[in-house]
Computed example of a mutant assay.
Amino acid sequence: MKEEAYGAVEIPDKFYFKIGEVSDIAGVAPYVLRFWETEFKQIKPKRTDAGQRLYRKQDVALVLRIKHLLYHRKFTIEGARQHLKKKPGPIPEPVPVVNVPDIAEIREELIRIRELIDGHRR
């Protein structure tokens, strides 16, 4: 598994992260991430139809960068905002949004496949 590191924190190599996963990776509470979304417009997690946040790897890296500026370098929120404007960092390529079927859809499809297989055995 390929991983990117920010300081001592490694970001797993996957397309999307739920807010709980980002919270664990960054070591901040989910409410802090939701607050940072309002303060830093660069953090733009995708939303599922159910409204669940899906953070991309670049969002996670930005969260770690913001945490470093606020917690370690002791920037104010405004100071961190200004710093990010001056030094925005690399712009990663966009990740295509993939609609993931839910478990019920997968189960229904597997049942249809099993019925097809059973029908051919007779």
Results as ranks from 00 to 15, higher is better:
69 L>P: 02
51 G>Y: 07
111 I>P: 04
44 K>L: 12
111 I>C: 07
115 E>N: 15
35 F>P: 01
101 P>K: 05
54 L>D: 01
29 A>K: 13
28 V>W: 01
37 E>L: 01
60 V>C: 04
86 K>Y: 03
58 Q>A: 15
104 A>Y: 09
90 P>N: 09
45 P>M: 03
74 K>F: 10
60 V>H: 04
36 W>H: 02
9 V>I: 14
65 R>M: 01
84 L>T: 01
102 D>M: 02
54 L>C: 11
28 V>S: 06
89 G>K: 07
115 E>A: 14
111 I>N: 10
87 K>L: 10
119 G>R: 13
73 R>T: 09
75 F>C: 11
116 L>P: 00
40 F>W: 11
72 H>V: 03
116 L>G: 09
61 A>P: 04
19 I>Y: 05
23 S>A: 15
115 E>L: 13
76 T>C: 02
117 I>G: 02
94 P>S: 09
2 K>T: 14
50 A>R: 13
1 M>K: 08
70 L>P: 10
31 Y>V: 12
8 A>Y: 08
40 F>T: 05
40 F>H: 10
83 H>N: 13
95 V>C: 06
43 I>K: 03
74 K>D: 14
26 A>P: 00
89 G>N: 06
122 R>L: 10
117 I>E: 09
29 A>L: 11
6 Y>D: 05
95 V>R: 05
121 R>M: 12
87 K>P: 00
3 E>S: 13
67 K>G: 03
8 A>S: 11
14 K>C: 08
16 Y>C: 03
28 V>H: 08
70 L>R: 05
1 M>R: 04
90 P>K: 15
101 P>R: 03
56 R>W: 06
26 A>H: 06
103 I>T: 09
52 Q>E: 14
110 L>E: 04
89 G>H: 05
37 E>K: 10
121 R>Q: 11
55 Y>Q: 05
88 P>K: 06
51 G>I: 03
5 A>G: 05
81 R>C: 07
95 V>I: 15
58 Q>Y: 02
96 P>M: 10
50 A>Y: 06
47 R>T: 10
19 I>G: 04
20 G>E: 13
98 V>M: 06
40 F>P: 12
53 R>M: 07
98 V>P: 05
65 R>Q: 11
120 H>I: 12
28 V>K: 08
122 R>C: 07
98 V>T: 15
13 D>M: 02
49 D>T: 11
34 R>T: 10
11 I>N: 01
46 K>I: 11
49 D>Y: 11
20 G>H: 07
74 K>S: 12
105 E>V: 14
84 L>F: 07
57 K>Q: 14
58 Q>M: 07
87 K>Y: 15
39 E>W: 04
118 D>F: 08
42 Q>L: 13
120 H>Q: 15
74 K>P: 00
83 H>F: 09
4 E>Q: 11
11 I>Q: 00
8 A>L: 12
9 V>K: 03
100 V>W: 08
71 Y>M: 09
103 I>G: 01
30 P>E: 03
21 E>Y: 03
80 A>G: 02
41 K>I: 07
51 G>N: 08
117 I>D: 05
77 I>S: 06
53 R>P: 05
81 R>Y: 00
76 T>N: 09
10 E>H: 08
15 F>R: 13
